[in-house]
Amino acid sequence: MRIEERRYTKADHFRATGYVLKTMKVTFKGAIRATKNRPCTILYPWEKLLYPDNFRGRPGIVLERCIGCARCAKECPNQCIEMVTIELPDKGKVKRPQVNLGRCMMCGNCAEACPTNAMIVTPEFELCSYSRGGLIFDPVKLQHPHKAGYEVNYSFALLSEMNAGGEIKTYAKNDNSVHDTIVLDGAKCISCSRCAKTCPTGAIEMVETGEVNPKTKKPIKQPKFDNTKCVVCEQCVDVCPKSALSVKEVL
C-alpha cells in the first residue's frame, strides 16, 4: 500500500550521472521556451493580471440598496465598519456604513451578511494612501460601479430538513420565507415603541392588544413583526430597555 520508495543508492562520489548535465539540459529547455514565447512574469505597472469577477478586493457599497441595518458592522471580525450619519438627497439624515480599510482584511464577511446585497466585494486592491485617515472610506467614497459578479450570495439548507432526510430544498441568502424571527416576551414589554422607531425596514408596528391601561385609560400597544420585511438586524433587540425581545432561530 506504500509507494515503493526509489532508493537513492549513494554510489561513489564522482559517478557518470553527467554530474549536472541532465539538469543543465532541463534548464536550457526552459530558457529556450522563455525566450521563444514571453516569460511568464508580467511587468506590473504596465501589464496587470486578469482577475475573476469574484476577486475579493476592498468592500464596496451600492447606496440605493443600503437600508442601514448595521449587520455588516456586527459581522466584521476586525470591527472596522462603523455606522455614520450622512445626508442623502432623498432620504435625509441616515446612518450608512463607513469602512476603515486600514484594518480591513478583505474577508468578504460583510458582503455575505448583507441582506439586500448593498455591501459588495470589489476587485480593487491598490489602496495605498498618504495618511491613515485616507484609508477610512466614508459611505460616499466606498461606492463602486456595480457588477453582478461582485455580490456574494450563498444558498443553504436547513438542519431539520437535512436530518429528516428526503428531498432537501436549498434557500437563497435573503429568502424572506426562511430566516430567524424576533419573539416578544409580552410580560416585559412596556410598549415604549422604541423598537418600532429604530427598525430600519419598518417591519415593526405597534398594535393595540385590547387591554386598557388603567391609569391613562389608553389602549396598550405592543409591537407586531412583519416577517417579510424583517432582516434580523437585531437593532430592536439591542435597543429594548427591558430586553423583552429575543431571536428565535429557524433550524
Partner: peptide, 13 residues
Amino acid sequence: KTLGRFMDRRGTQ
C-alpha cells in the same frame, strides 16, 4: 538577462 531567461522571467528593465 540570461539568468532571467533561465528562470522564466525577464531580466532588468
